[in-house]
Design a binder for these strands. Sequence first.
DNA 1: CCAGGTCTTGCCATCGATGGCATAGCGCGG
DNA 2: CCGCGCTATGCCATCGATGGCAAGACCTGG
Lengths: 332, 332
Amino acid sequence: MAKTAPTRLLDVANAAGVSLRTASRVLNDDPRVAPVTRQRVREAMVGLRFEPDAMARSLRAGTDTAIGFVVESISDPFFADVIDAVELEMSRHGRSVLVTSTRRDSGWERDVIGRMLQRRIAGLLLCPTGEDHSWLDTGRLPIVLVDRPAPGLPADLVEIDDHRAAFEAVAHLITHGHQRIAYVGDTPAIPTSAARLRGYRDALAHYRLEADEYLVNCNCATSQDAAHAVPALIGGSRPPTAILSATTRASLGVVPALHSAGRTDIALVAFGDFPMADALRPAVTVVDHPGHEVGRVAAARLLARLSQPGLPVERIQVPARIIERGSGELRP
Amino acid sequence: MAKTAPTRLLDVANAAGVSLRTASRVLNDDPRVAPVTRQRVREAMVGLRFEPDAMARSLRAGTDTAIGFVVESISDPFFADVIDAVELEMSRHGRSVLVTSTRRDSGWERDVIGRMLQRRIAGLLLCPTGEDHSWLDTGRLPIVLVDRPAPGLPADLVEIDDHRAAFEAVAHLITHGHQRIAYVGDTPAIPTSAARLRGYRDALAHYRLEADEYLVNCNCATSQDAAHAVPALIGGSRPPTAILSATTRASLGVVPALHSAGRTDIALVAFGDFPMADALRPAVTVVDHPGHEVGRVAAARLLARLSQPGLPVERIQVPARIIERGSGELRP
DNA sequence: CCAGGTCTTGCCATCGATGGCATAGCGCGG
DNA sequence: CCGCGCTATGCCATCGATGGCAAGACCTGG
């Protein structure tokens, strides 16, 4: 409960009988300090429980050591994973992370990013929400984009290789004998969704299968949409024998819909793992979103850029892998 | 790409033809500035795109405006929810949030908290990992504990009312006709688990039901443990007709175990909601962990303490509610 | 024994913004 | 017409740490 004022470097200097400057040199491991002096100062630091004031250092340095991370939603399981990995990687390098979410509101996004800029953060990890981000292109702040590109903002991008993941998911179904494979996903206006849809089409083309547009539903922004899409698909004249559910939200609609229609014989591969995927019958084969890996790579990239500001802008794709659990291995 | 140095308040003052001090007054809405002067300064600020340097202000003020939030794991769905709510509440009040996780390592916890203290954060939200936290009791830093108490650290605590939630879950099963109700959970060494176990026992006592210790398994730290516990419970001579699964991890073992044993006739109430709870047959009745509400209340409490440092230490319990989906409403 | 160099240490200014006090300018009553 | 009081503004010090430069101590070789 004792409200003692925090110890300053000046107090340490006085206690050790040296000047402020010398104490500062000890703190920064400057070699130009006599070993005995260094020892005395070190002891004073320990004795007084000195902790350097990060604000003062940052002010002097002109930049904070912390980095900012802006996502759409913190409670989204994928981003929670990404944040976890980013925080681990940054903590290992002694950097703190300011986390904030945009709530899909580009005005709000500008506000929170503005607040981070005022703090002179060292760098920014950004999963962009708004449309045009060219206002961020100051050349002053190192930025690494996460999971999606930002229009008007040339910066590193770390993303899942959605095209390849979708391609492989479809190939997986095809090698298990399926020829009529449906696609349920979100609008191609979202680059991520567009890449998945291309992967789906490219796989069909690659295996010379008919691409029936009737089997493609890419208007499912919500779980409800996806749930409604299923009866329409399987009730058709030439129904699919397998489904690729291209977003986690879609899966949350597709899975219950298949169960309540009693059509668990239809093969399913779903984008995005979820806790109970194992508990369902059949257990759901998923394309795992490697959130942890995306976060680790993005953090590493930002750290690299911080130490070498001249790095060329890169687009880094993290592979996703299929977790086979049963539903994706069903035969028609 | 233009690497222009950020505008300082001094630049604004020069552009407006006033002194630095006057510009500062305008920035802080000090009434002692003539309206015309204020107008001129404001225009200069907008014209030069001035953004105040938060570091410098914090240095002067002696404390950062940001707050810290230390959790065990960011990717835990419950904490992800809590963080989301905290960040929203703090953003609304113009404060940033430094998030970090302890990874259940009390040495690491000290490191990351130490880093936050060096930043002179305004306050701390803490879900403690280590044993003794009395070293944090400086009286200098406002602290609100989240979800669990910290030994040796008198501070506000915001938690779920686990006792009541467990009591109500058991009462829910009892009113649906069950008399033999099993408990599957983690060790009572964890205060949260202990409260749930007490709630379970108190409910049985309240309804004058036999408390059969054979039906209580509180050694399930992992999903595997819980999965193994189920066959032992339901294979006994007087098996339960209902199960209370007291942690999310336990549920991830209990649910598949019931399904693969073909005993979905056994009623189940599970602590902690999960995405597919709806998709299972029967859909799983859960006691929702109100992570969002916990976060909102904790953030509000910290904000209150920041504006009124003298507030007495309180223990705030957030109620959890039962989401009925089917499995908890089965009759014996 | 001294000049020249190295090693160690200290003083002062600085980062950007704000608090305390001083002061210039103005209006108004005596 | 003078002085008091109020408003509007400016100068300087300050927060805590670090960079540049200078100066003192000490050592070595000539």
